[in-house]
Write a protein that binds this DNA or RNA. Structure first.
Length: 212
DNA sequence: AACGGGATGGTT
DNA sequence: ACCATCCCGTTG
C-alpha cells in the first residue's frame, strides 16, 4: 500500500501520468487523481485545472457503470487498456472519464470538477461565462471549458498529446481532506460511496451538504 | 422507425 | 422543481 511515486529522488516527475498509474484498482485511482492536473492542448491553446472531484465506476456488481449494462461501440474503450479517455455524450453535453484496471474489466473514473489553473480566458470564451466557479464545476462544464468532445473518445492519455494528466503539486495534506459520498445523478447503487472530493473546495460540484 | 431514459446544467 | 436537447440502446 505504498503511494504512487509522484516523486523520485525528491524531484517531481514532469512527464504525464502513465498507464501504470491508471491500471490499478478504480477507487484507488479515483482518490489519487485528486490534486493532479488535467491538461488539454487544443489548437495550440493550453488549458488545465487541478482535479478536486471524481467518481469511480467499478468493473463488477456496479449497476451504475456503463460497462455493466452493455458492451457496444460506445463503451468499447472501457474494455481496453487503462489510461484511455472514455468521452460519452449526455443531454447534448459530454463527460470525460479515464479507463482503469486491466483490459476486459470495464471500469473508469469520471472527472467531475477542476480548480482552473491555466488558460482561464480560453475557458471563459468556451463556456460563455466569466465567473470562475461556472467554468469547471461539473463534468460537462469542465469538458466544455477544456474543449473536450466526442472526437477525444479513445485518446491515449499516457502519450501527453492533446489531453493528459500531470502530477502537479498534489494535495496539501494539512489542508486538503478527502471525503466520500454517494455518486451524483446516479439512480442505482445509491448506497455506494464512490464519489471522492476535496472537502470544502470552492470548485466541487453538488449541493452544499455534498461539498463540505 | 419510433421510443424513452440519462454519470447534465441552467432557469423558475 | 422543471425542462431543453440529443445520443444511443431497445423494441417493433
Amino acid at each position: 500500500m505504498r503511494p504512487f511515486p509522484f516523486f523520485k529522488c525528491g524531484i517531481p516527475l514532469k512527464s504525464p501520468l502513465d498507464r501504470e498509474f491508471f491500471a490499478r484498482e478504480t477507487t484507488r485511482v479515483a482518490k489519487e487523481l485528486l490534486g493532479t492536473v488535467l491538461v488539454s492542448e487544443i489548437g495550440e491553446i493550453r488549458t488545465c485545472g487541478r482535479i478536486v472531484e471524481t467518481e469511480a465506476y467499478l468493473p463488477e456488481r456496479d449497476s451504475a457503470c456503463h460497462a455493466a449494462k452493455y458492451r457496444t461501440a460506445r463503451t468499447e474503450v472501457m474494455f481496453g487498456p487503462a489510461g484511455y479517455a472514455y468521452v460519452y455524450p449526455i443531454h447534448a453535453k459530454h463527460c470525460f472519464n479515464i479507463v482503469t484496471e486491466l483490459e476486459e474489466r470495464g471500469s473508469a473514473v469520471l472527472i467531475r470538477a477542476l480548480e482552473p489553473l491555466d488558460g482561464i480566458s480560453m475557458m471563459q470564451a468556451r463556456r460563455g461565462q466569466d465567473q470562475e466557479r461556472r467554468l469547471t464545476t461539473g463534468p460537462a462544464c469542465l469538458c466544455q471549458a477544456l474543449g473536450i468532445d466526442r472526437s477525444h473518445n479513445q485518446v491515449d492519455l499516457s502519450r501527453g498529446k492533446t489531453i493528459w494528466l500531470e502530477p502537479g503539486i498534489g494535495l496539501r495534506s494539512s489542508r486538503d481532506i478527502i471525503k466520500s459520498s454517494q455518486r451524483i445523478g446516479v439512480t442505482t447503487a445509491k448506497t455506494r460511496r464512490l464519489r471522492f472530493y476535496v472537502a470544502g473546495n470552492h470548485f466541487v460540484s453538488g449541493p452544499a451538504k455534498m461539498r463540505d
